[in-house]
Design a protein around this nucleic acid. Structure first.
Length: 864
RNA sequence: GCGGGAGUGGCGGAACUGGCAGACGCGCAAGACUUAGGAUCUUGUGGGGUAACACCCGUGGAGGUUCAAGUCCUCUCUCCCGCACCA
């Protein structure tokens, strides 16, 4: 007899698993496969119980699937490039590689301490040239296909990261995803992009394949992010004649545009989803950084209303106003809440549908990044336009009324819904939907517009002006221009000893040995690209590399990937709902088009687990509320930590850490241990199979086996179906309680039945508390490890109750219960119910009008 | 504003396709064993009510469907998350 000593037990079994290479897997097309994966960690800080919850869920699934006979791939690796490593290295005067590798060693040690069933031979680290050379290889393929391209554009700059961010890395309407208190700034920088927009339609369309397998909200978030809008573009011709007093400036402007006379029509292209409201347009409004604005503003057209009406200025006033607006837009002031602002350019444009001249304005609420950077303002039917029009005194003509209303609605109401067109020339009387169709078609026929679908999704900006990332493999030659690094020269390795300052310049650019190269084409002097890639490139395809982690000739062997993919179950935090998961889907489609993979989507099922919180907020080092994984393992053992996180809440919900509740988990495991320990010796040589071969059961045996198989049925369902680990554990607890209640087992329960029941407890616990289960299994006299044992089949017959207690309702209220043999017919139950004094009292003197009977479940007597 | 989700005891949470609401655990209370116990075992524990039953109320709120509603329908309130002057 001994105590449960998790420290000893856990070390012992981890060693055995390793010696027996229990978790090592090879692809084998003759076996059914299962690929379960947790998102790879960024090795920084300490592993806390929030991480462990994630890995525990994955590990339970991996172990259950193994017990069910699947060939299971369950790997682990490190998202090892990234800014924190570089910043920490600067701070501590060390090298990012040193800092990172130290963390990796630490992470690995703690993960091993928890006994997760990883195939460690497949471990990858994205900062190794063996890995990132394939980032470069993929980049070159994308360059060839025109998917990777370089352009100068307005980008998001985080002053703290000192680098550009992708749109997906800008959160909360303008803040850095790493520094949630820091606003991003707009900068004009030349950088590399991957053309995610080329896949916008597919990324949206294929979300349908993911329905059912991915959480609804992740699908919704991606759909939202891609942001498809179906509408039309319409061209408004700029009225040149209106600029009577600006001939001089117009001539100079004409130089950049074309000949003055005959003036080729210059147009402002607007995008709208409501072309049906175009008769109600009272202005064209441009984004402050729209390319035409500078020129329109510079024209000398004086505004006769200048100074008398809001938004009207002289030419100088307009320039000043524009400069002001640009400054606030660069600062990234909160555009969602900022007051509408703008000014009249002094110029007009012609509505192509009714030839009406309407003023051209500049407005702070029009975004260059969306649509065409220009809109038509329809103040009667759009809230924002209305606000603008009211502030600046623009007319508000009504062109839509509710269907069935003969008179246009009062102007006070802004009708944004569909209705019926009014005051819209030949389109009056059509429904909005009809008008949209007809008018878009007519615009196309008339040559002044077309149907158009636009997306909110932007191309993925991947250039980063930092050191600790994958060098972008291109060279700039004075003679040959942009030259890709030839495949044979890959990898382009990071220089070993960079000068890291953390200031806004690519560290690689300061290293002459790295930068100065010979042009691969002409051999002349050339410069290397000195930016590195966004680290989300690394994580966009890493799960493919696990299938073939040491391949030196290719990113992976397509045959191996074809066997393992798609990922059967991916597990991670909701944080990556857009970033990592969208990029990964994009990468998969690119690889498919390169002929490397055959599937459209890399991840079949996605599970987003809840956070582990303490004090109501997620555990994080900076908040100082972490429960360290290692301390936890030292105090209670890994198994207690594992079962606690599984039991305390369903896996998709947030979990508030409770020191009291973990004591409960610890007590439970001790209870199980004692149960086995107190009779381990006497049962060692007992053959539990005998219990199954000679099924002559005493009442007590029957009762125990029934409980055991009922639990097994529920636990099996909970593991296979919706991952109700908490209720699975509750079932096992009930069984354990029942065994305690049946003590002393020696009275009335044969040894083989005792052993059978204890083995079932052990096997059910095995995926969740694998160390303890192995130990119990051994204590029960088994020399083979649990890894050789299959998941037990539950026996319906054993699980079935002989007798059931049927609640009896009178008029829908439970008034009593009768005990009958399972499966008893209505007549029998009814008879017993009538005989029951308590129930009879409620029936007294009333006519029985209806009887509802559900076998073994309930009897309802309707009287009255 | 748009989209997604959640409201059940003192707490975490159960309840498969409508069929005994509160499984299991924590906490709390009582008892047993003990020199002692913050160990272990047993019992009790939604609220009201009763000597004890009976009975009444009860899954955010208001209606509805049904023999029967935490579960389905309509309306509504609160909270959390994501996106957001997206034209």
């Amino acid at each position: 007899m001994g105590d449960y000593k998790p420290q000893e037990i856990e070390a012992k079994w981890q060693k055995r698993w390793e010696e027996n290479r229990v978790f090592e897997t090879e692809s084998d097309p003759t076996k059914k496969k299962y690929y379960v994966l947790e998102m790879l960690p960024y090795p920084s800080g300490t592993l806390h119980m929030g991480h462990m919850r994630n890995y525990t869920i994955g590990d339970v699934v991996a172990r259950v699937k193994r017990m069910r006979g699947f060939n299971v791939l369950h790997p682990m690796g490190w998202d090892a490039f990234g800014l924190p490593a570089e910043n920490a290295a600067i701070k501590n005067h060390t090298h990012p590689r040193v800092w990172t590798n130290k963390n990796i060693a630490e992470f690995q040690r703690v993960l091993r301490r928890f006994g997760f069933s990883y195939d460690w031979r497949r471990e990858i680290s994205t900062c190794e040239p063996e890995y990132y050379r394939w980032n470069q290889w993929f980049f070159l393929r994308m360059l060839e296909k025109g998917i990777a391209y370089k352009k100068k554009s307005r980008v998001n700059w985080c002053p703290k990261c000192c680098t550009v961010l992708a749109n997906e890395q800008v959160v909360n309407g303008g803040f850095c995803w790493r520094h949630e208190d820091t606003r991003v700034e707009a900068r004009e920088i030349e950088q590399w992009f991957l053309k995610t927009t080329a896949y916008a339609e597919q990324l949206l369309e294929d979300l349908k394949e993911l329905e059912g397998g991915w959480p609804d909200r992740v699908i919704a978030m991606q759909r939202n992010w891609i942001g498809k809008s179906i509408g039309a573009k319409v061209w408004f011709v700029i009225d040149e004649g209106s600029d009577s007093s600006g001939a001089e400036s117009q001539a100079s402007a004409a130089k950049t545009v074309g000949a003055k006379a005959p003036t080729p029509e210059r147009k402002i292209e607007i995008f709208t989803t409501r072309i049906d409201t175009i008769y109600g347009a009272s202005a064209v409004i441009l984004a402050p950084n729209h390319p035409l604005v500078a020129e329109l503003v510079a024209s000398k057209a004086e505004d006769s209303e200048a100074g008398r009406k809001p938004g009207h200025y002289t030419a100088e006033g307009r320039s000043r106003k524009l400069a002001e607006m640009k400054v606030s837009s660069v600062k990234g002031e909160d555009i969602a809440t900022a007051e509408k602002d703008g000014f009249f350019t002094g110029r007009y444009a012609v509505n192509p549908f009714n030839e009406e001249k309407i003023p051209i304005w500049v407005g702070n609420f029009v975004l260059m990044e969306y649509g065409t950077g220009a809109i038509m303002a329809v103040p009667a039917h759009d809230e924002r336009d209305n606000e603008f029009a009211v502030k600046f005194g623009l007319p508000i003509p009504v062109v839509v009324s509710r269907v069935g209303e003969t008179m246009p609605p009062e102007r006070a109401e802004i009708l944004t819904e569909y209705g019926m067109s009014v005051n819209s020339g030949p389109y009056s009387g059509l429904t909005s939907q009809e008008a949209i169709e007809r008018m878009a078609a007519d615009a196309e026929k008339g040559g002044f517009g077309n149907k158009e679908t636009i997306f909110r999704l932007r191309d993925w900006g991947i250039s980063r002006q930092r050191y600790w990332g994958t060098p972008i493999p291109v060279i700039y030659c004075e003679k040959d221009g942009l030259v890709p690094v030839p495949d044979k020269d890959l990898p382009v390795v990071l220089p070993a000893n960079p000068k890291l300052t953390g200031e806004g310049q690519s560290p690689l650019a300061t290293d002459p040995e790295f930068v100065n190269v010979k042009c691969p084409k002409c051999g002349g002097p050339a410069r290397r690209e000195s930016d590195t890639m966004d680290t989300f490139v690394d994580s966009s395809w890493y799960f493919y590399r696990y299938c073939d982690p040491h391949n030196e000739k290719a990113p992976f062997d397509p045959a191996k990937v074809a066997y393992w993919f798609p990922i059967d179950q991916y597990i991670g935090g909701i944080t990556h709902a857009i970033l990592h998961l969208l990029y990964s889907r994009f990468w998969c489609k690119v690889m498919r088009d390169l002929g490397l993979v055959k599937h459209n989507e890399p991840i079949g099922r996605l599970f987003t687990q809840g956070m582990v919180q303490k004090g109501g907020v997620a555990m994080s080092k900076s908040r100082g509320n972490v429960v360290g994984a290692e301390e936890m393992a030292q105090k209670y053992g890994a198994d207690t930590g594992r079962i606690y996180t599984l039991f305390a809440a369903p896996p998709e919900k947030d979990l508030e850490w409770s020191e009291d509740s973990i004591e409960g988990a610890w007590r439970f495991l001790n209870r199980v241990y004692r149960l086995v320990d107190r009779r381990a010796n006497s049962l060692k040589s007992t053959d539990s199979a005998k219990a199954r071969k000679e099924p002559i059961y005493t009442e007590k045996e029957k009762e125990l086996l029934r409980k055991a198989h009922q639990a097994l049925r529920r636990v099996t369902q909970d593991f296979e179906g919706r991952w109700h680990f908490n209720s699975a554990i509750a079932q096992i607890m009930e069984l354990v309680n029942a065994i305690y209640a049946a003590e002393p087992l020696e009275e009335g329960v044969r040894p083989e039945v005792q052993k059978e029941v204890l083995e079932l407890v052990t096997l059910m616990l095995a995926p969740m508390t694998p160390h303890l289960a192995e130990e119990l299994w051994e204590m029960l006299g088994h020399a083979n490890g649990l890894w050789t044992v299959n998941w037990p089949e539950f026996n319906t017959e054993l699980a079935t109750e002989d007798e059931v207690e049927v609640p009896v309702q009178v008029n829908g209220k439970v008034r009593g219960r009768v005990t009958v043999a399972a499966g008893a017919a209505q007549e029998e139950v009814l008879e017993k119910a009538k005989a029951d004094a308590g129930i009879a009292g409620h029936l007294d003197g009333k006519a029985l009008r209806k009887v509802v009977f559900v076998k073994d479940k309930m009897l309802n007597l309707v009287v009255g």
